[in-house]
Amino acid sequence: MSCGDPGADGTAGLAQSATEVRLGVMRLARRLRAEREPGELTLGRLAVLGRLERDGPATTSALAAAERVTPQSMARLVQHLIDADLAERDLDPADRRAAIIRITEAGRREVLRDRGQREAWLAQAMTGLTDVERQLLVLAARLLDRLADS
């Protein structure tokens, strides 16, 4: 990856910066996926379990919106998680016609195991960085998180 002038003016400089960020993020995402043990949980199912573990119970439509998939796709995905006893469906106390999806203890263990494995690889990889580089990487991660929410 080249290191262009981060302060470059104009559309071309911004486009080059965007390209470098995209490539770096994509390469890291692929590497983190490669650190997963092969298993029955697809990345989509794991993403939903992770969201339930982080954010708490949600409706299927809220999960679909958060993961940017159709409600029908999310309904199938959630049903797989329920069938595997990784999630459960309860009636929404605020709207008895709606259902709330929550992670089970088995689902939580699976998410934490998977997350821990990938974070262990990343922590090991970061030992080759200086303190300043690690601080910059954490700052960049926070900025990437803000970009993802925009």
Rank of each mutant, 00 (worst) to 15 (best):
R109G: 07
V78Y: 01
L122H: 09
L86T: 13
A120S: 11
I82H: 03
A120N: 04
G107K: 06
A123L: 14
E119G: 03
L112C: 01
G107L: 05
D95S: 06
V111Q: 11
L112T: 11
R102I: 02
L86Q: 11
R109H: 08
Q79D: 15
R115L: 06
E119C: 09
A98T: 14
H80I: 03
R97D: 07
L77A: 07
R113W: 07
A98D: 14
L129V: 03
D95C: 01
L129R: 11
W121H: 15
V111R: 02
L81F: 06
R108F: 03
R102G: 08
Q79S: 13
I101C: 11
E119S: 05
R97G: 12
I101Q: 10
R115T: 10
I82N: 06
D85E: 15
A75S: 15
I101W: 00
H80G: 14
R109A: 11
T70Y: 04
L112V: 12
R115V: 07
R102M: 00
I100Q: 15
R113N: 09
A98C: 01
I101S: 06
V111I: 13
S73Y: 10
I101L: 03
R89V: 14
R89P: 03
E105P: 01
L77N: 00
D114A: 06
R102Q: 09
A120L: 08
A87S: 09
D90T: 07
G107I: 11
E119V: 14
D83V: 01
A75C: 02
V78L: 06
A106C: 02
L81M: 06
D83C: 04
P71Q: 14
G128Q: 03
R109K: 15
D114Y: 00
D92Q: 02
D90Q: 13
Q117E: 08
Q124P: 00
Q79H: 12
I103R: 00
P93W: 03
R115A: 09
G107V: 08
P93T: 06
G116D: 04
W121P: 05
H80P: 05
E105S: 15
M126E: 15
E119Y: 10
A75D: 08
D92H: 01
L86Y: 08
R118Y: 02
D85V: 04
T127P: 02
Q72F: 13
R109I: 03
E105Y: 04
L77S: 12
R96C: 01
R76P: 00
A84D: 12
G107R: 00
G116A: 08
R108Y: 00
Q79I: 04
